[in-house]
Every structure is written in structure tokens, then in C-alpha cells.
Write a protein that binds this DNA or RNA. Structure first.
Length: 538
DNA sequence: CTGGGGTCCT
DNA sequence: AGGACCC
């Protein structure tokens, strides 16, 4: 018999606020919001009770609620740290570590194996011929090895809310597995609250989308189970735009396709078209979805309307696939301003790389291959659209023998500024409201091994790619010996100088820079004044 | 006025 | 390189 997965969706309540309350418990009692620039990105439940909204403009909220306390949340470090801690904590409880993170505050847990193991234990208690399991209390085991690790739960009842308010016809098969899932969900949430101090909302169902939507239906600090026999009824009342993975664009395309040819006067406003799942299901069909959205997306979204979500839990890797730092401004119009911002962003980016890509010994766990610079021009395209340019990332960022200052200067002048020139092209005048620096294409470093020869044989090619010629020439010869020494110690690859046989003459200090405007070479510290010269001159 | 991040697909 | 989606 085909068994459905058991998926738990967890969502930390008002996450940024919870983190701030963790640092400052006084906040717990008052209405406060976390702001980023001119917007309230989230607020605690005390504030929500007053009517403060998420994503509300800060000025509007303060007009309406003059006493609302405001915390600046533009620096995400605290939230990122807390997010990682909670993710690891949850992951340690889930067999096989099958936990996927979505944003900073949501997790998907595939607990199918844990449920199946415990269902087998429950079945051993089953009396043949009896219509249901005879036990009202059951010890759910959280460890295969240690039978004393786990929790007791009443297996004849569901923990938390029911998505449609009704119980399933029977408590066997997949339904029983979801009932166990609800108790597991409750236990995991209790552990997270008791040990980490964070409340959460939980959803339990047979796939990620249904679990996520179930969890969102009762907040905060609650959980909800959605049995598959009620999934369609549950979904049918929702607007399609509220189904995860159906965004504004897809919704618009779908409704356009359905209402194509109807009187546009009557349907100028989105609200005039019925976008409920029920309505869309009955007015459209799979072929219409595929025709308007393409085979892949059409197929996927049509399935979603029917509670079918084939995407399993994809365990989030320890290393991110990209790291980016950005800032927004009213207006940035001069190279010197851009230069200064890129400098500041580069320090943050380097710090992030040290935190996310290094092990405790200072060895690199992964090497980004590409640097990407993104901007948002003031008023071209729709709001939020970005343009970007990328190039290979100078390997000096992996150096442990250069100062942070040196590496940042190098990055700004040799990487970000040239990319910025490429971005603005021939235009001498620009107006930028966002700058984002990112390192992407992060290649996982080979596992540490004492077997140097096999390691070299495998990594020779990529290591050669990783080392750009400029940097190779600039490394002082004393560093070269040091790096090779570390290499032999198998601390993980820094630079590969093997195969580079000829002796290179290194300059004492080769830190000259070229001005991106006129190409003149100068020391980095002179660049700022030089840029100002250009500003005044033009 | 309209964050600061992320992932995956095309 | 951009665009869709998520938070």
C-alpha cells in the first residue's frame, strides 16, 4: 500500500520581534515594530492587536500609533544567527536531518520515517480484529537506538486544531500517521519553546503546501493538522493568490486566461474576478494552465489547486548557495558615493563569508566562484527590478595572510567598481537606489583528508581556475611558502601553487589601483580624493 | 513611500 | 542576466 509522507511545517511567530525580545525582554510587554528603512517589516502581537500591520509604511503607522516603539532591523545578523540555531535544533530531532528552511522563519520537516517506525510499534500493540488501536497512551520514540528517548501522547486524539474543524472518518492508515504527526509536531514545538524560548505555529499534512497552509490557518503559538480527505474543501475557499508558489504574476496570467474575451469594463479591477480555488478549478482546466503558464509551471500550479504537491522536503545544505549584502538609498549619483557604499558592503560581505563558509579552524568549507553586483535604477522598469553584472571572484578573498582592509580595498577597486562601470555602460549620469554585492556559485571544498595525493588529483583543475593570474603574481614569496605549508597540513585549499614552477619576482608593495574613470594608477588611499577631482572636473 | 535577504528556473 | 517564487 502506498503511504503518504508526513510533513510538518513550522513558522516562528513574529520572528524578528521574537529575536529582539530575546535580546531585550522589556520589549515583550509593549507594542513594537521592527523597521527597515521606511517600512515596518514586522511587529509583535501586542502591536498587531492594536491594528499595526506588517509591511505598513513607517510614517503611516506612527501617525496612527504615536506610541509604537520601533527597532531597526536593517542588519539581519541577529535574525540569521537565531534562524540557524533553531534550524539546527529542529534538524537534530528529525531522523536523517530532513529539514528544509524557507526564509529565516520557516521549516519543513519530513518526519515520515519517524512516523513509520512508531506506527510499527503501535501495530505491535494492536489486537487483531479490533477496530482501532486499544491504547489511549502511547510512547512515541524519538530514537531508534534508545527506547527511553521520546514522549507520551494520547494516540486517540489529535493535537491542536483541525483544518476544517472535523475529524476524519477513521483513525487508520494515513490518517493515523497524521495523528501521530500532530503529536510529534506538538512535542517538537514544545522543545523549541522550552529550550530555545521561541513560540511557533505548526502545520501537519501529507505535503509541504498543505502543511504550510494548515499551519498558517491558526496563529500564533498553535498548530493545525489537515487530513487529505478534507484538503479540497480546505483549499476551495482560498483565493489562488494565497496558495504558496502562486504569486501575483501567475495569478494574473491565470485570471487573464480564464476571463479572456469577457467585458473588460466589468473586470478592470482584480476584485471583480472570482479567484477562489473552487471557481478557478471549475472555469479552467489543466490544458488552459499549461497553455498560459507553460508545461512545467502549468502542471505544478494545477496540481496545487487540488492539494497535490510533488516537491519533497529538500534538506537545506549547511552552506548557502549565495551570500549577498545590500543597502538602499534615496539616490546615489556619484562614483565616490558608490565607492564608499561598496566599501562598507564589502566589509559585511567578508564577515559573512567568514561566518558562513569557514570552519572553526579557519579552513574554508566552500569557495564562491563568482562576484555579482546588482543595482536598481531609480525609475526604469517596474518597481524592484534589478540589473546585474558578474565576473569571477578574485581568490584573494580566501587569503588568511592579508588584512581585511587590504582585501576590501582590492575587492572594491578591482571587482565591484569595474562591474559598476560595466553596469552603467557609456552613461555618464546614473541614479542608483540600491547596491547589492554577492558571492555566488559556491563550490563545496573537498572534505579534509590525510591522503594528499588523491586530494590533489581530484582538485587540480578547479584550483587552477580558482586562482586568477593577477593575484598569483602579487603574493609575496614568503606567503607562498606559508600557504604551501598549510596546504600540506591539509587544512583545506587556500591557493594552489603546485605546478607553478618558475620563481616570480614579487614587488614589495604592488597595491596600485587604476581609476575606473581615467585609468590612472595610484595608491588606493588616493582614490577617494581622485574621484572627487573627477566630480568637480566634470 | 515600497526591507534585506534567499532559492530555483529559463 | 533576468525573472519567478518564498520569507
Amino acid at each position: 500500500m502506498l503511504r503518504s509522507p508526513v510533513i510538518i511545517a513550522l513558522d516562528w511567530d513574529a520572528f524578528y520581534c521574537s529575536v529582539e525580545e530575546h535580546f531585550n525582554p522589556e520589549l515583550r510587554k509593549i507594542a513594537f515594530a521592527v523597521k527597515q528603512k521606511g517600512i515596518i517589516c514586522t511587529c509583535n502581537y501586542v502591536a498587531r492587536a492594536l491594528g499595526v500591520k506588517k509591511l505598513q509604511l513607517l510614517v503611516d503607522a506612527l501617525k496612527q500609533f504615536p506610541d509604537l516603539a520601533i527597532v531597526n532591523g536593517e542588519d539581519l545578523s541577529r535574525y540569521r544567527d537565531a534562524s540557524k540555531e533553531l534550524w539546527y535544533f529542529a534538524r537534530d530531532m528529525v531522523w536523517g536531518g530532513k529539514v528544509e528552511r524557507l526564509g529565516f522563519d520557516e521549516l519543513f520537516l519530513d518526519v515520515t520515517d519517524m512516523i513509520d517506525f512508531n506506527i510499527a510499534l503501535l501495530d505491535n500493540l494492536h489486537v487483531p480484529g479490533a477496530s482501532s488501536h486499544p491504547v489511549s497512551s502511547f510512547f512515541f520514540r524519538m530514537s531508534k537506538e534508545d527506547p527511553s528517548v521520546g514522549f507520551s501522547c494520547p494516540v486517540l486524539t489529535v493535537a491542536g486544531n483541525l483544518a476544517t474543524g472535523s475529524l476524519p472518518g477513521d483513525f487508520r492508515g494515513d490518517n493515523l500517521r497524521l495523528v501521530l504527526g500532530s503529536h510529534l509536531c506538538h512535542y517538537i514545538r514544545s522543545q523549541i519553546l522550552d529550550i530555545k524560548g521561541y513560540t511557533s505555529s505548526g502545520g501537519v499534512s501529507i505535503n509541504k503546501t498543505l502543511a504550510k497552509m494548515a499551519g498558517a490557518s491558526h496563529k500564533p503559538n498553535q498548530q493545525t493538522v489537515l487530513f487529505p480527505e478534507f484538503a479540497q474543501d480546505f483549499l476551495d475557499t482560498y483565493d489562488i493568490g494565497r496558495i504558496p508558489w502562486i504569486g501575483h504574476k501567475s495569478k494574473s496570467i491565470i485570471l487573464d486566461a480564464i476571463y479572456k474575451g469577457t467585458d473588460s469594463v466589468n473586470h478592470t479591477m482584480e476584485g471583480a474576478r472570482d479567484g477562489t480555488v473552487f471557481n478557478v478549478r471549475h472555469l479552467a482546466n489543466k490544458q488552459l494552465f499549461i497553455n498560459s503558464l507553460g508545461q512545467s509551471a502549468g502542471d505544478k500550479l494545477w496540481d496545487l489547486l487540488h492539494g497535490v504537491d510533488q516537491t519533497g522536503v529538500q534538506p537545506t545544505p549547511d552552506m548557502p548557495t549565495q551570500i549577498s549584502i545590500e543597502d538602499t538609498f534615496k539616490s546615489l549619483t556619484s562614483l565616490i558615493e558608490v565607492h564608499n557604499v561598496l566599501r562598507r558592503l564589502s566589509y559585511s560581505l567578508l564577515d559573512r563569508m567568514y561566518i558562513d563558509l569557514m570552519d572553526s579552524d579557519g579552513g574554508w568549507l566552500g569557495h564562491p566562484q563568482t562576484a555579482r553586483l546588482s543595482t536598481r535604477p531609480r525609475s526604469t522598469g517596474y518597481y524592484g527590478s534589478r540589473i546585474s553584472r558578474s565576473d569571477s571572484l578574485p581568490s584573494i578573498v580566501f587569503s588568511n595572510s592579508h588584512s581585511r582592509d587590504y582585501i576590501v580595498d582590492y575587492l572594491v577597486d578591482r571587482c565591484w567598481m569595474p562591474l559598476f562601470s560595466k553596469l552603467i555602460g557609456d552613461a555618464k549620469i546614473f541614479d542608483i537606489v540600491l547596491l547589492n554585492v554577492a558571492v555566488i556559485n559556491i563550490e563545496k571544498a573537498p572534505a579534509k583528508s590525510s591522503d594528499i595525493t588523491s586530494f590533489l588529483g581530484k582538485k587540480k583543475h578547479t584550483d587552477n581556475n580558482q586562482l586568477d593570474g593577477v593575484h598569483r603574481e602579487e603574493l609575496p614569496v614568503t606567503k607562498r611558502a606559508k600557504v604551501v605549508g598549510e596546504y600540506a597540513d591539509s587544512k583545506g585549499p587556500r591557493f594552489n601553487f603546485l605546478g607553478d614552477d618558475e620563481d616570480v619576482i614579487f614587488e614589495e608593495d604592488n597595491y596600485g589601483e587604476s581609476c575606473v574613470v581615467c585609468g590612472q594608477r595610484m595608491m588606493s588611499f588616493a582614490l577617494e580624493a581622485h574621484m572627487r577631482f573627477h566630480e568637480l572636473g566634470d
